[in-house]
């Protein structure tokens, strides 16, 4: 069950980023890349979840890739959620609480500005 979740998560993410890469490369294959210097907020749309989804709907290559990467980040988060449900089902309140802390940390990291 957990194994299926992880496999589907990773394969789906890999598929989405591959599609995004194809769109991106079809447009920018011959331009020169520049990753030597980091510039903050160069593309605001790629640093928020709504921004990424909005770009992905328009089939912007970079946004589609970023959406796939977000799916990948969501995979372990989903796994922790399933653990929380399992601990709650077992009425193991201590571990439900522990898992909730971990889940909160993951949520904070993704949503904190």
């Amino acid at each position: 069950m957990i194994g299926v979740l992880l496999r589907v998560g990773v394969l789906l993410a890999a598929f989405v980023v591959a599609v995004g890469a194809a769109i991106h490369l079809s447009a920018f294959a011959t331009t020169a890349p520049d990753y030597a210097k980091f510039s903050l907020n160069r593309e605001r749309g790629l640093t928020t979840i709504p921004g990424v989804i909005a770009g992905a709907i328009k089939l912007d290559g970079r946004s589609v890739m970023q959406f796939g990467l977000l799916l990948l980040i969501a995979t372990p988060i989903a796994r922790v959620m399933f653990s929380l449900i399992a601990f709650l089902h077992e009425k193991d309140w201590l571990y439900s609480f522990f898992t909730f802390i971990v889940l909160s940390a993951l949520g904070f990291s993704l949503l904190a500005r």
Partner: peptide
């Protein structure tokens, strides 16, 4: 995933 979220919102994850 815990640190990737921070890197994402800071713009350190470049999709290309």
């Amino acid at each position: 995933a815990a640190s990737a979220g921070i890197y994402f919102s800071r713009g350190y994850i470049d999709p290309a």
